[in-house]
Write a protein that binds this DNA or RNA. Structure first.
Lengths: 328, 328
DNA sequence: ATGAAAGCGCTAACAA
DNA sequence: TTGTTAGCGCTTTCAT
């Protein structure tokens, strides 16, 4: 069943178990000779330290959990990859948890895992603030794509990003923008709306909002119809690329030309944005770095007071493709 | 730091620790009255069983690991989601491991995790057979998108799938097919080639092979050029959708019309295949079910002898889109 | 039906 | 530098 233990190694190497333990965890505190012998014997026996026993005693599990709102959103790929890479460097294991857009599922999963992980990264969490605070009280937490005083966070700089979008559209002659909003319980949806308003005001253009829409491709049809129905706008800013792509498809069906009749912008720069027709202009950013930074923050979280939890805002970049053009 | 233990609960409920333990793990062996009291007290105290302590003793970790060859391949989304869903039903935790297309990374991660998980699902493993057998000797293993005698596996039925592809192309008048092969250490690449040959023979058409190519979009350019250079073929079958989309892009750049001049087929039916222009005809299948089945098999693996490890082959479906058409 | 007590594999005092 | 020993939180005989 399970392999050899330190007892086996200790017996074979003719030392005490504590020496074996030290040889692994504090190599400096054993003489080079014994250490080498212990390691040699351990290797020969195929000994592997049991993480559970270690965790039970030390309280450290060398495991962090990343909770994502919906794992089928391509946008998470790079995020996960970045987190995974950073975790591996520190020999941490990354636990991936899918909340399936359900706050209840998210909460339950977190509670279940809490005793077994060193901390949580909550990405685009759908949980209300007070729940986040509760969790942060038990375990170190890093928020991704969300901010809350008292909890560390990593986001792409949506304020600057929305400014980039609006200024791009304004420079193309657009004066009436329409934001196709994301879900009500999405912090990002609210924040983007606020940022768009500010940016629009500064740029001297108008922006309205419709929605909310679930950010999936199949919701794009409804969003496009609603946008057309609202009328007046020459540029549509969708909550994310998935929704934007759905909008693009529906507009094509209805014979509305993009970008001639209307321009469309998304968020996230997912792979498909580069592949659809026309290519989708979208606000991207280094999601890999977001994942990396989140783990980084989490691993160093213990040493910080609740008051000065860092808020990291990584730069965005507006990727111009065919879906935006000058007004005619 | 850590929460209340069974001792706290036992003290508060005025019972022995073993009673608390039983109340949770074997509800039938405690009187209803005490059980209710214990559970009530536990809930009040916010008691959560420590998974490590439990695992240490029982050897069961309630955790399974899914190793994927490259997590940025969209094709894995549904697979992961299916696995996650099935695992959650049994209150298992899904550990996601990214091998980054590197056999060395894959091997190291598996060895590191081996003592902490109940089993592995290896998806499109790049490891040689003997390594897989070694791993299977230590822990239950389910192969995904790969088969090996003595180890359980779940695959989409590529033999039938390749027959569907060839017969579709043949019915459109194609007589010369070209397979753009995947990586050399990909079992799927070899298997698909064999299945295509068989199917081609039966359909009375010819099929050749070029490659290998790393199955990424940016390799599609080289693949397309090589295909054009090889000449003669009227239909290209790419190792997967990523490669196929790259091919599509390169062909467009070079002024080769799809499907008028050449037809293109991919594998996996990733999201982007429905979004690119023209839409990509591709061999899809219920990847969610593959993920589900993999976990299912893994959780019931202990009870089976090495000889009769099941090989599950799930049905494929050829999704017709614009990238295939009749020869002119 | 319940309690007492012995570990699971490892680490961390404390001694030597 | 190395050994001894007492647990970490839980399950599981073995008694009662």
């Amino acid at each position: 069943m399970s392999g050899p233990t330190i007892y086996d190694v200790a017996a074979a190497a003719e030392v005490a178990t504590s020496t074996v333990s030290r040889a692994f965890s504090q190599p400096g505190r054993v003489s080079a000779a014994t250490r080498d012998r212990v390691l040699a014997v351990a290797a020969e026996l195929g000994y592997r330290p049991n993480p559970h026993a270690r965790a039970l005693l030390s309280g450290k599990h060398h495991t962090v959990a990343m909770v994502v709102s919906d794992i089928t959103n391509p946008h998470y790929f790079e995020l996960i990859r970045g987190a995974e890479m950073r975790a591996r460097v520190s020999e941490y294991t990354l636990l991936l948890v899918n909340a399936e857009e359900s706050p209840r599922v998210e909460w339950e999963q977190i509670q279940r895992l809490a005793p077994a992980v060193d901390g949580f990264m909550l990405s685009a969490s759908r949980l209300p603030d007070e729940n986040l605070l509760q969790i942060a009280a038990q375990r170190p937490v890093v928020l991704v794509s969300r901010e809350l005083p008292g909890i560390a966070s990593v986001v792409l700089d949506h304020v600057e990003g929305c400014r980039q979008i609006v200024s791009h559209l304004a420079s193309l002659g657009h004066r009436d923008l329409l934001y196709l909003a994301g879900p009500r319980n999405s912090w990002m949806a609210g924040t983007r709306w606020a940022a768009l308003q500010t940016a629009a005001e500064q740029a001297g253009v108008s922006v309205r909002r419709i929605g909310p829409f679930t950010p999936k491709v199949n919701q794009g049809g409804a969003a496009a119809d609603a946008a057309l129905n609202a009328g007046g706008a020459t540029a549509l800013v969708a909550h994310n690329d998935l929704l934007a792509i759905g909008v693009l498809q529906r507009l094509a069906t209805r014979g509305v030309r993009v970008p001639d009749d209307v321009s469309v912008v998304g968020f996230d720069d997912i792979f498909a944005a580069d592949v659809c027709t026309p290519g989708l202009t979208t606000l991207g950013g280094a999601h890999v770095d977001v994942g990396r930074a989140a783990v980084e923050l989490l691993l160093t979280a213990g040493s910080r007071a609740p008051e000065d939890q860092p808020r990291v805002a990584l730069p965005t970049e507006l990727v111009l493709r065919g879906s935006t053009g000058a007004t005619t």
